[in-house]
Design a protein around this nucleic acid. Sequence first.
DNA 1: AACTTGACTAATC
DNA 2: CGATTAGCCAAGT
Length: 135
Amino acid sequence: MHNCQMTSDQSPDPDRQLAAIRAVVSALRVGEVVTYGLVADRAGLPGRARLVGLALRTAPDSTTLPWHRVVGAGGRIVFPAGSESAEQQARLLRAEGIDVKGRRVAMPQGADLDALLWGAPGAVKMRRSQKGDRR
DNA sequence: AACTTGACTAATC
DNA sequence: CGATTAGCCAAGT
């Protein structure tokens, strides 16, 4: 059977990508909070933050997956305010020692970490130091 | 095959 | 700081 034309493996199967994303999330330790974008980056899928959401949403084992450790950019919970999901995520994070204010996780004293990684290894993409950094 | 939808993100208002 | 808009990428209709 040769006839197989190209196709090759240039484009990894979608499931493969989703699996990679879930693996990254599954590897998150207690108290470690990362953003969708960072998860995508770690999974080798830069620019596909939305794909992370899809992977978590379609995760077969969301119950055993620390999905709550994944938040939106800036440490904001992406679920609608007041929604059960948002409340549950906030509760789960608090249970791990993460302080959550409303739909946003409390970061190290007003640091402008957009990538915000609490306990995450080698992250801190930092953000330009704002202008009048007041306190 | 075109259009809509979504667990995203950044910039504006 | 919340609401809007626009850009982005893949899946579902």
